[in-house]
Simulated scan of single mutants.
Amino acid sequence: MKLTPKQKKFADEYIKTGNAMQSAITAGYSKEYAKARSSKMSENVGIKSYIEKRMEQIASPNILTAEQILERLTGIVTGEITETVVVATPIGVEKTEKTADFKTQISAMRDIMKRYPNNDKLIEQQIRKLSAQADVAQIQAKRMAEGEQNSSVNVNIVLPEQEDNNGERFSD
């Protein structure tokens, strides 16, 4: 399947950035079209094939493979990969190893899930919930560090309307 010049430019930009929507805009598609269709464009058989061939051409032993990237992201999520941090102590400085914070772990989970086009909405919602819990925990920790006695956080959640099987709208 031969690609149009716009499709080819989209694919080349997507290889550079990994951002489907921005790649579509850079390739000359309208912002509205890019917003609505860019993820489908990257799943197009012809575009996907072109990207795979280009990635094989530019492969280098110095570039991480997709498998290596997924393994590293998984290591961040599971805590197997740590980072060295320098901490000030009363007697000087000390190096210590720490696992990634919740926000970094959640970001790694999202990056992993992007690579699986059939990820289901339940997992996506669970990641959103974990992200919200991490935000609340961060606010509570900040308040406690500032000396506040009551560190509870009120959260208001607005649920989107959904349609049931009969096409009727309802809210959860």
Score class of each variant (00 low, 15 high):
residue 102 F to G: 01
residue 108 A to S: 02
residue 144 M to K: 07
residue 71 E to R: 15
residue 84 T to A: 10
residue 53 K to L: 11
residue 155 V to G: 01
residue 119 N to G: 13
residue 92 G to I: 11
residue 105 Q to H: 01
residue 70 L to P: 06
residue 107 S to E: 07
residue 117 P to N: 07
residue 45 V to P: 12
residue 116 Y to E: 12
residue 93 V to P: 07
residue 110 R to E: 01
residue 130 L to A: 11
residue 125 Q to P: 01
residue 34 A to Y: 01
residue 36 A to T: 10
residue 118 N to V: 14
residue 102 F to T: 01
residue 56 E to S: 11
residue 64 L to P: 07
residue 126 Q to M: 14
residue 149 Q to T: 02
residue 29 Y to I: 06
residue 69 I to C: 08
residue 89 T to M: 09
residue 55 M to N: 06
residue 155 V to F: 02
residue 82 T to D: 04
residue 111 D to R: 08
residue 154 N to A: 13
residue 148 E to K: 12
residue 129 K to E: 02
residue 110 R to N: 07
residue 148 E to Q: 12
residue 50 Y to K: 03
residue 116 Y to F: 15
residue 138 Q to W: 02
residue 118 N to D: 14
residue 44 N to Q: 07
residue 103 K to G: 12
residue 134 A to I: 01
residue 48 K to C: 06
residue 96 T to R: 15
residue 96 T to G: 10
residue 147 G to K: 09
residue 111 D to I: 06
residue 28 G to E: 04
residue 45 V to W: 05
residue 43 E to T: 12
residue 108 A to C: 03
residue 59 A to I: 08
residue 72 R to W: 14
residue 65 T to V: 10
residue 150 N to R: 02
residue 142 K to H: 08
residue 117 P to E: 09
residue 109 M to C: 07
residue 145 A to L: 05
residue 62 N to R: 09
residue 154 N to Y: 14
residue 139 I to E: 04
residue 93 V to D: 14
residue 45 V to Y: 06
residue 46 G to W: 03
residue 115 R to I: 12
residue 105 Q to Y: 01
residue 128 R to Q: 10
residue 61 P to I: 04
residue 120 D to C: 07
residue 58 I to R: 00
residue 85 V to F: 07
residue 155 V to L: 04
residue 154 N to L: 12
residue 119 N to D: 15
residue 154 N to P: 07
residue 77 V to A: 05
residue 137 A to G: 00
residue 91 I to Y: 15
residue 114 K to A: 13
residue 127 I to P: 03
residue 50 Y to F: 10
residue 81 I to W: 11
residue 152 S to T: 08
residue 51 I to M: 10
residue 50 Y to G: 04
residue 91 I to T: 15
residue 40 K to M: 14
residue 59 A to E: 13
residue 146 E to K: 09
residue 153 V to C: 01
residue 123 I to C: 12
residue 33 Y to F: 13
residue 26 T to I: 08
residue 87 V to I: 12
residue 117 P to K: 05
residue 123 I to Y: 13
residue 31 K to Q: 14
residue 85 V to Y: 05
residue 101 D to I: 09
residue 134 A to C: 07
residue 133 Q to D: 03
residue 142 K to M: 09
residue 150 N to S: 02
residue 132 A to I: 08
residue 129 K to W: 01
residue 78 T to V: 11
residue 139 I to R: 03
